[in-house]
Computed example of a mutant assay.
Amino acid sequence: MFTGIVEEIGTVRDTVRNRLVVEARGVLDGTRMGDSISVNGVCLTVASLENHGFTVNVMPETLRRTNLGELRYGDQVNLERALLLGGRLGGHLVLGHVDGTGEVMSVVSEEDARIVRVGAPDRLMRYIVDKGFIAVDGVSLTIADLDDVSFAVSLVTYTMGSTTFGGRRTGDIVNLEVDILAKYVERLKGREEQRLTPEFLGEYGFKGAVDVG
Rank of each mutant, 00 (worst) to 15 (best):
H52C: 00
F54W: 01
T55I: 14
T55N: 06
V56R: 10
V56T: 07
N57F: 08
N57K: 10
N57I: 07
V58A: 04
R64L: 14
R64G: 01
R64I: 09
R64V: 12
N67V: 06
L68R: 00
L68V: 10
G69Y: 09
L71G: 06
L71I: 05
L71Q: 12
R72I: 03
G74L: 06
Q76R: 15
L79N: 04
E80I: 01
R81H: 04
R81V: 06
R81K: 15
A82D: 12
A82P: 01
L84C: 06
G86V: 10
G86K: 00
G87N: 09
R88Y: 02
G90A: 07
G90M: 11
G90F: 08
G90I: 12
G91A: 12
H92R: 05
L95S: 15
L95Y: 05
G96L: 14
G96N: 03
G96H: 08
H97M: 09
H97C: 08
V98Y: 01
D99G: 02
D99Y: 03
D99L: 11
T101A: 03
T101L: 05
E103D: 09
E103A: 14
M105C: 07
S106M: 11
S106N: 14
V107M: 13
V108Q: 08
S109I: 13
S109F: 06
E110T: 10
E110Q: 14
D112F: 06
A113R: 14
V116R: 04
V116N: 05
R117P: 01
R117G: 03
R117L: 07
V118L: 14
A120D: 10
P121W: 13
D122A: 11
R123Y: 15
R123V: 08
L124N: 00
L124H: 00
M125G: 01
R126C: 04
Y127I: 07
Y127N: 05
I128V: 15
V129S: 08
D130V: 06
D130N: 13
K131T: 13
K131R: 15
G132M: 04
A135P: 01
V136H: 06
D137E: 14
G138Q: 13
V139Q: 14
S140G: 03
S140W: 02
S140K: 00
A144T: 09
D145E: 15
L146P: 04
D148N: 11
V149S: 11
S150W: 05
S150L: 03
S150N: 11
A152T: 15
A152L: 09
V153Y: 02
S154Q: 13
L155A: 10
L155Q: 10
V156C: 11
Y158L: 14
Y158T: 13
T159C: 05
M160I: 13
S162E: 12
S162R: 15
S162P: 00
T163F: 05
T163H: 07
G166W: 05
T170D: 10
G171W: 10
D172K: 07
I173R: 15
I173Q: 09
N175C: 09
N175W: 11
N175A: 03
E177H: 02
